[in-house]
Structures are given as structure tokens and as C-alpha cells.
Amino acid sequence: MIAEARLRKIIHDPQGFNERERKLIASSKSQIERWKSAVDFAFRRQYAVPVHLEIRDSGADPKVISRHAIITEMLDEDLKPIIEGRNKTAHGQWIWELNNLETQFKGRAADPMNYLAISRRGEIIDDLAEIVHVLIVSEPAFQREFDRLYGKIGTTRCVIDGNDYPQFEATIRSSGRQRIRSAMKDDRR
């Protein structure tokens, strides 16, 4: 839901797309296709790539072509699984996963995520949304911010599964005990 809301906010930024582009993006069938359309339109606008050419075949600077490919790959590899996982949960696929038509079982659903896994997926959505938003509204800002945001996503990818939750939990428990001890000392005074 966060990904969908962030995309809507990006698309309707007054400094971004015009009404025609918004309608074309909205006409895409799936949410991930809407994200890809937004990225595609933004690259075309910022780097003057005609609609009849693929960005990779446009003769644009290799760095531009590479960044387009990187963002498209992040949408497929990072955002798409988050969106699909949320949709499966929203449609009640908690124990058994169904095919796209919801007519047959594909197998067991993924185990529930812990707080860190959920939180880190939100971080990836936020960082991807920021990359796309900056691309849409300002090419110089995109050039300046791309490496920083891409690096943040790479770091988050390494810990997205939340396997470090036991350490996180221990830290929270420890800090809670310290606050209780401190409060008890204050009460004794």
C-alpha cells in the first residue's frame, strides 16, 4: 500500500508529469508496470529520448542508459516482490499460495515477516520512490543523489530478511531494563 501511495504522490507532483503522461501511466495494468512507465517517461523527458526509441538504443550517454537499467532492475527485483507479497497477504494467502488467477494452489506461503523485515521493505520503497521522484522533477538532483540512494538500497538489501531480529530484540530488552533500573534509582532518592 505504501508503494502505491508513494507512486500516486510522485505522479501528481505539479513539477513532474503533465496530465497526459499521468493518464498513460495510470493506464498500465499492474502497479509495477505503472512504476516502470513513470521511470520510462521521466528518463525520456530528462534526456530527450523520443518515444519511438528504446532508451538503451537511443544514443543517450552510457551512464544514463545504465541508470535506467539499474532502476528498472530494482523495480523488478526489489519492489515487485514486496508488492506481490503484500497482495498475497491481502487476499488471504497466509498458509497456501495461489496462482495469479487464484484457481490453484502453488505451494506453502512464505513465513510471516518480523518487524525488521517489514521495516526494511518500507525503507526500500522509500529510497526507490525518492530516486524516481528526484528523476522526475530534477535531472541535476538525480545525478547528484543517485549514487547515495542506490547505496542505501544496496545496504538494506543485505539485511532485508530480518535475520538479525534476535539481536534487535535483545537490544530493546536491554535498554528497557536499563530504563527501569534508572527509574527505580530515581524513586529511591
Rank of each mutant, 00 (worst) to 15 (best):
M1C: 04
A5F: 06
R6A: 11
L7N: 05
H12L: 08
Q15R: 15
F17R: 05
N18C: 09
E21R: 11
R22W: 09
I25G: 07
A26L: 11
S27I: 02
S27V: 02
S28R: 15
K29L: 12
S30F: 13
Q31K: 07
I32H: 13
I32K: 13
R34A: 07
A38P: 04
F41E: 06
F41V: 01
F43I: 01
F43K: 02
Q46K: 13
V51Y: 14
H52S: 12
L53T: 02
E54P: 00
R56Q: 11
D57C: 06
D57F: 12
G59D: 08
D61C: 09
V64G: 03
V64D: 04
I65H: 03
S66V: 00
S66I: 00
R67H: 11
H68N: 11
I70E: 12
I71R: 10
T72K: 13
T72G: 09
L75H: 07
E77K: 15
D78P: 03
I83S: 02
E84L: 07
E84K: 13
G85T: 05
N87Q: 10
K88P: 00
A90P: 02
H91N: 07
W94N: 12
I95M: 10
I95A: 09
W96A: 08
W96S: 04
E97D: 13
E97I: 00
L98H: 07
N99K: 04
N100V: 01
N100D: 15
E102Q: 14
T103G: 06
F105S: 09
K106Y: 03
G107V: 05
G107M: 05
A110C: 01
A110W: 05
P112S: 06
M113A: 10
M113E: 15
N114G: 07
A117E: 13
A117M: 03
I118F: 10
I118Q: 14
G122R: 14
I124Q: 04
I131N: 05
V132C: 03
H133P: 00
V134N: 08
L135R: 11
I136H: 08
I136M: 15
I136G: 06
S138L: 06
E139P: 00
E139V: 05
A141M: 12
F142V: 01
Q143C: 06
Q143A: 14
E145H: 10
F146A: 02
Y150N: 15
Y150E: 13
G151Y: 07
G151L: 11
G151C: 05
I153A: 03
G154H: 02
T155A: 14
T155M: 12
T155C: 04
T156G: 03
R157Y: 05
V159F: 13
I160P: 00
G162I: 07
G162C: 08
N163A: 08
Y165W: 15
Y165A: 08
P166R: 07
P166V: 02
Q167A: 15
E169P: 00
E169Q: 13
A170T: 07
I172W: 13
R173A: 14
R173W: 12
S175K: 14
S175F: 10
S175Y: 11
G176A: 08
G176Q: 13
R177G: 00
Q178H: 09
I180G: 00
S182R: 13
K185A: 07
D187C: 01
D187V: 01
D187Y: 04
